[in-house]
């Protein structure tokens, strides 16, 4: 098997958000008074070693704030690790909180092109793909309407349609598995199943243990920014559930 993602001793320190009230006036004053402290930092990921092979479906589980989403951000290249190295082979399609990139004033069509360009496609390619995306999202009648005119369900459908129309080597799912009404959810499921069948590498963050157990072949259990356990998805999920089960 070919490895597509490799993390060697990846650690990440981030500024804590608690002193988020930094302004120029206060900083200048505190420097003048000699009270300036370097901002506090917190270890968010601690020595992560991980090798993901082509076609792996990796589930990432753990309590809130354990660094699951942060790990995905490091793998997508949004955050740079403070220490350690990261290697990624192939293109990554992030599917994190659909529709976050939309400009609500612009038309649906313009948003499709803009979103696609942000995901790394050319304008021309997106203009050609736009109609198949609209088809899938069932929004053909709305393509000139501004996104703010869509309902929230429609917006989420559009986001899903764009992000999955891309044919990525690595798909990242952060708690977004299906959106919209019942019939659209089935369509989403079908599309995701196709990814599963393909040799696409999938990384999933989910709190749905049944989903992880059924859909993933591997799983890691994160806690406080470090990997507590890694291995077969069923074993790890059971281990995790045992750990939090009431005595």
């Amino acid at each position: 098997m070919q490895e597509v993602i490799r993390l060697d001793q990846v650690s990440l320190w981030r500024r804590t958000q608690e002193e988020f009230s930094y302004d120029l006036k206060k900083t200048v004053l505190s420097v003048l008074e000699g009270k300036f402290n370097r901002p506090k930092r917190k270890l968010v990921l601690d020595g992560i070693d991980l090798v993901i092979e082509r076609g792996d479906k990796l589930g990432i589980i753990g309590p809130n704030g354990s660094g699951k989403s942060t790990l995905l951000k490091v793998i997508s290249g949004i955050l740079e690790p403070t220490h350690g190295t990261l290697r990624v082979r192939g293109n990554i399609a992030p599917l994190i909180e659909l529709g976050a990139g939309f400009d609500v004033e612009l038309s649906v069509f313009d948003n499709i092109v803009m979103y696609g360009v942000m995901l790394g496609f050319s304008r021309r390619e997106m203009q050609q793909r736009a109609f198949s995306i609209l088809d899938f999202a069932e929004l053909n009648d709305y393509y000139l309407a501004p996104v703010k005119a869509l309902s929230s369900g429609m917006t989420a459908r559009l986001g899903f349609a764009i992000a999955t129309d891309v044919h990525p080597d690595i798909l990242i799912l952060d708690e977004v598995l299906s959106v919209g009404d019942e019939s659209f959810m089935r369509k989403c499921q079908k599309r995701l199943d196709a990814f599963w069948q393909d040799h696409v590498t999938v990384l999933v963050v989910s709190h749905s243990m049944d989903f992880i157990r059924e859909s993933c072949n591997r799983c890691i259990f994160l806690s406080n920014g470090s990997i507590q356990a890694a291995g077969d998805a069923k074993d790890i999920v059971d281990q995790y559930l045992d750990g939090i089960a009431p005595p």
Partner: peptide, 25 residues
């Protein structure tokens, strides 16, 4: 340090920057 190995024929960094600039403007 992040090393990204590209094996698909995608846009180069310069092309991507240009396309992004275009849609943002």
């Amino acid at each position: 340090m992040a090393i990204s190995l590209k094996n698909t024929a995608r846009l180069t960094e310069v092309q991507r920057y240009w396309e992004l600039l275009y849609v943002l403007v």
